[in-house]
């Protein structure tokens, strides 16, 4: 029952968010600030994680293939597809949930408990739309961009791993990377990225917006936002994979 009540409130919150902004100029200004903040703040962590995911994937898949009759060129293909289909969109989304999700929830939560949201409402501003909509659109732009960057970097990480591990030559790995490329996998991956971005931004904004009390509740809202976003990302990852690839 409580889940249904929360879900209903979430839908009402979305309805309030997706109203026409009071002033487009202020919306765009907030949007670009948010895109910069989300992209810039997450750039380093996404870079590090992506490189290591690719590197580890090469070692793990390579160790499975060694000694088998399968040609080692297949390693590049497996790592590429795994990175594009799963590792980059899902792990980047989970990292972003922790990074920007908690940020959004605590920022809006603090505004709520310090009456800044009330001040907006009293002025006649649609507070839900003003605080959350630029963040939602910024996430829809920044997360897919970071996922695309992550796909590229994960494959580079794989090449670096090949160079150091001597499991397979870099040339063989690159040959595998270029083998039987299916561009639909990119569509699938970006669909997941957009879905995850929407879930992270809306769930975190909603949790921040519902905060009542003080600093303790802001922390709790931030934790809830991350946990709920992660669960939603994994759940929709499964649903989208089932729908698009099966």
């Amino acid at each position: 029952m409580k889940f249904l009540e929360q879900f209903g409130r979430y839908i009402l919150f979305l309805r309030a968010c997706f109203r026409k902004p009071d002033k487009w100029r202020m919306f765009w200004r907030a949007f670009f600030t948010e895109v910069y903040k989300m992209g810039n703040d997450s750039f380093l962590i996404v870079s590090i994680i992506s490189m290591f995911i690719g590197a580890v994937a090469v070692i793990q898949f390579g160790s499975q293939l060694q000694g088998s009759l399968v040609p080692m060129t297949i390693l590049g293909r497996i790592v590429r597809d795994a990175n594009i289909l799963e590792f980059s969109p899902t792990i980047t989304a989970l990292v972003m949930a922790g990074k920007i999700g908690s940020n959004i929830a605590s920022e809006i939560g603090t505004m709520k408990v310090s009456e800044q949201i009330d001040a907006l409402e009293i002025m006649g501003v649609n507070a839900a739309s003003y605080v959350a909509l630029p963040k939602i659109f910024a996430a829809l732009f920044a997360v897919p961009a970071l996922v695309t960057y992550s796909m590229f970097l994960a494959n580079v990480g794989g090449a670096i791993s090949c160079y150091f591990s001597e499991m397979v030559s870099v040339d063989t790995y690159v040959q595998g990377l270029r083998m039987d490329f299916n561009s639909f996998f990119i569509t699938h991956s970006l669909t997941k990225a957009v879905t995850s971005a929407f879930l992270i931004a809306t769930i975190s904004s909603y949790n921040g917006y519902q905060t009542e009390g003080g600093a303790l509740e802001v922390g709790s809202a931030s934790t809830k936002a991350v946990v709920q976003s992660c669960i939603a990302i994994i759940f929709f990852d499964y649903i989208l994979t089932q729908i698009m690839l099966y």
Binding site: T110, M111, S114, E115, Q116, D118, A119, I122
Partner: peptide, 10 residues
């Protein structure tokens, strides 16, 4: 409206 804590945008 003047709020107790000011409610200025941080």
């Amino acid at each position: 409206m003047l709020f107790q804590g000011g409610a200025l945008f941080d």
